[in-house]
């Protein structure tokens, strides 16, 4: 029996990141983007730019230099006017999965870091299966970034990259989020998986910076039952609480009133994150680690605009 809040070992293989039931739940899903995001590459995602796809977009009068193959000869026959058919250009979508790799994520049963990794892998597999590009970033781990992955073959690489994370980073989450906004070229679907337990007021600014670059940003705040309900999950008696990242901590005699104070502070922090996210266009979602992943993917992430 492990101590209160202690996490079980991290998954040792890629297979452990994706249960068959979860894989089955991913069938038919795709990454949702409320914005049409520009991309230098043609992809399967409809772009705001007119391009070369087969999907008709509009007509415009012919001008010298236009490609004669695009003249709509049926219109010319009926109206005796040369018009050019415009088609919707198709771009691929860049999905950025930003996983908090700080030491605070290695907590709870189930482990927050493991849960975040599983969600990221499921989203990555979904995106790669839909033909999008995927890029993974580790927050709090000195800017570790995966290669830009494409195609179904990239799923294995993404899984291995996630498995190799150590969850012992000591970085500044807000700074890493700002750095992330600059590191992503073009606009992308950015899904941040973090506990967001950062005491500073820098989090709202970081989220604002991230969203201001035109990214479609989701903040999945991953918390464990032990954090949400300490007494109910077995934390009692006298303890010295040690911060996972700083190593400091107070002496606490756990009582109902102490827990109430703690939960009030935690709720206030979550609400602050939620409000700040909404202000800057980031869509927040609180995820419990004991929540079934299938339900999360098929229901809450679709409702939250992460998947469709």
């Amino acid at each position: 029996m492990s101590r209160w809040g202690e996490s079980p070992p991290r998954p040792a293989s890629v297979d452990a990141l994706l249960d068959p039931a979860v894989a089955a739940a991913l069938v038919g899903l795709d990454i949702e983007s409320r914005k049409l995001l520009a991309s230098p590459r043609h992809g399967e995602r409809r772009s705001t730019r007119r391009g070369t796809s087969v999907e008709f977009a509009d007509f415009r009068p012919y001008t010298a230099g236009d490609d004669l193959r695009r003249i709509d000869w049926n219109v010319y026959a009926r109206l005796d006017a040369l018009v050019i058919k415009l088609f919707q250009d198709e771009e691929d979508l860049l999905t950025v999965l930003a996983v908090d790799d700080s030491a605070s994520m290695r907590f709870g049963t189930p482990c927050k870091h493991t849960t975040a990794s599983k969600i990221a892998f499921a989203l990555g597999v979904t995106a790669l299966g839909a033909g999008h590009r995927v890029q993974a970033h580790a927050l709090g781990a000195e800017g570790a970034v995966s290669q830009t992955l494409r195609g179904r073959g990239g799923a294995g690489q993404l899984g291995k990259w996630l498995i190799d994370l150590s969850a012992d980073g000591r970085g500044d989450l807000a700074m890493d989020l700002k750095a992330l906004s600059g590191a992503v070229r073009g606009r992308a679907k950015i899904i941040v998986l973090t506990d967001a337990l950062v005491p500073s007021d820098a989090m709202p600014a970081a989220m604002s910076t991230l969203a201001s670059r035109g990214h479609d940003v989701h903040l999945l705040q991953v918390l464990s039952p032990q954090e949400l309900q300490p007494l109910a999950t077995g934390l009692s008696g006298d303890h010295r609480l040690v911060d996972a990242e700083t190593g400091e901590g107070p002496a606490v005699s756990m009582t109902a009133s102490i827990e109430a104070e703690y939960r009030a502070r935690l709720n206030a922090h979550v609400e602050m994150i939620d409000a700040a996210a909404h202000r800057c266009g980031v869509r927040p979602l609180l995820v419990r680690t004991d929540e079934p992943l299938e339900d999360l993917l098929r229901s809450r992430l679709r409702q939250g605009g992460v998947l469709r």
Binding site: W4, F107, L197, D238, L241, V242, A251, V252, S253, Y262
Partner: peptide, 22 residues
């Protein structure tokens, strides 16, 4: 006191001032 690892000790800052713990 048993040492318990928590993700964010600052959330317990009020508890740290609890008289019974002092």
């Amino acid at each position: 006191r048993a040492r318990i690892r928590v993700p964010a000790q600052w959330l317990w800052s009020d508890a740290r001032e609890d008289l019974r713990a002092q």
